[in-house]
């Protein structure tokens, strides 16, 4: 009996630390970052980095000195990247990753996951406002502004499938979508979800918060060494979790590992294509975009869903 408990414990510990959580997730994040960079390079007719470049970047950053600027709260400065990464890793527990059932699941975990994913932007914003650097401050303001603009449409877009499945539990929604491509019935929701993910990750054209030609690296300007490495890792984790969620909800499920990779990478290709095609939006323009079009699109989607539901019953 006692040995059973210990065995259980060990298995869950391994699940959290190595596979499918923890280390495996981090490595997958790096892999997807490489695919992202390589694809973008290909679309721009360049070579792009070699496969180990993201890993090499992280190792290099980890080996470097971490400079804590004067006049910042050192605990916050060091703690925020860790919280951001922890948020991403915790969210991973509820997501059907790499074709596996989520290791934890309860009714309403979708909301928890989405909020855990938002922790990254929140930590970025806090990290930026923690320093006195002016680029960081402007970057943090923009990060938080962007957070408030994309968050609601993104949430609504992910709730669409939940509504269709009649459950707020990721696992149940995923089972429901296994046989249905919600992309066909909720195309607008899909669009908003994809662009929302880009906003969350501050990818071009929604990269005003870290527009290097204006504010250097935005909120992360003062970060070097370990802090920067951890922030980058958590971006990778957020990227992969976001892709998983969207693929699971809109692209007909991800319970098969092969389909999982195929679908998430196809999704990544769409994102990279959008990245390549558009010029950066100013922060006021992207906020305007979200409130004027993003929200409207999801609302139309929801209206359609209600009407359709009414017709059906």
């Amino acid at each position: 009996m006692a040995s059973d408990i210990i065995k259980d414990l060990l298995v869950s510990l391994a699940a959290i630390l190595f596979f499918p959580g923890g280390l495996f997730l981090l490595l997958c994040g790096l892999l997807y970052e490489w695919i992202d960079r390589k694809l973008l390079a290909q679309l721009q007719n360049r070579i792009g980095p070699r496969w180990f470049q993201p890993l090499a970047d992280v190792i290099k950053l980890l080996a470097k000195e971490e400079v804590v600027p004067e006049e910042v709260d050192a605990r916050l400065f060091i703690g925020l990247p860790i919280v951001a990464l922890a948020g991403g890793l915790t969210a991973a527990l509820y997501v059907p990753f790499a074709g596996l059932a989520p290791s934890h699941s309860f009714n309403g975990d979708l909301i928890v996951t989405i909020y855990l994913l938002s922790l990254l932007s929140l930590c970025l914003g806090l990290a930026g406002s923690n320093t006195l650097d002016r680029f960081s401050l402007v970057g943090a303001t923009r990060t938080l502004t962007q957070l408030f603009s994309y968050e609601a449409p993104f949430l609504l877009a992910l709730l669409g499938p939940a509504f269709a499945a009649g459950s707020w539990q990721i696992q149940e929604i995923a089972t429901y979508t296994e046989t249905r491509w919600l992309l066909l019935s909720q195309p607008l929701g899909f669009l908003v979800a994809v662009i929302g993910l880009m906003g969350k990750l501050e990818l071009p054209p929604l990269d005003a918060p870290e527009a290097e030609t204006e504010i250097v690296a935005g909120a992360l300007t003062e970060y070097s060494g370990r802090g920067l490495a951890i922030f980058r890792l958590s971006k990778g984790v957020t990227l992969i979790l976001g892709l998983t969620l969207i693929a699971a909800f809109y692209l007909g499920g991800v319970s098969n590992p092969a389909f999982f990779f195929l679908k998430t990478i196809a999704l990544l290709l769409i994102i990279v294509g959008l990245k390549a095609l558009f010029a950066r939006l100013r922060i006021d323009q992207s906020v305007g975009l979200w409130w004027r079009y993003g929200t409207l699109l999801v609302l139309i989607q929801w209206l359609g869903m209600f009407l359709w539901g009414g017709v059906m019953t």
Binding site: R46, A211, T213, A279
Partner: peptide, 16 residues
Amino acid sequence: AAHEAGFDTLFMYSWR
């Protein structure tokens, strides 16, 4: 100029 505007694709192609 394209790079300043965050339009790196135009940047890459014009330099190519």
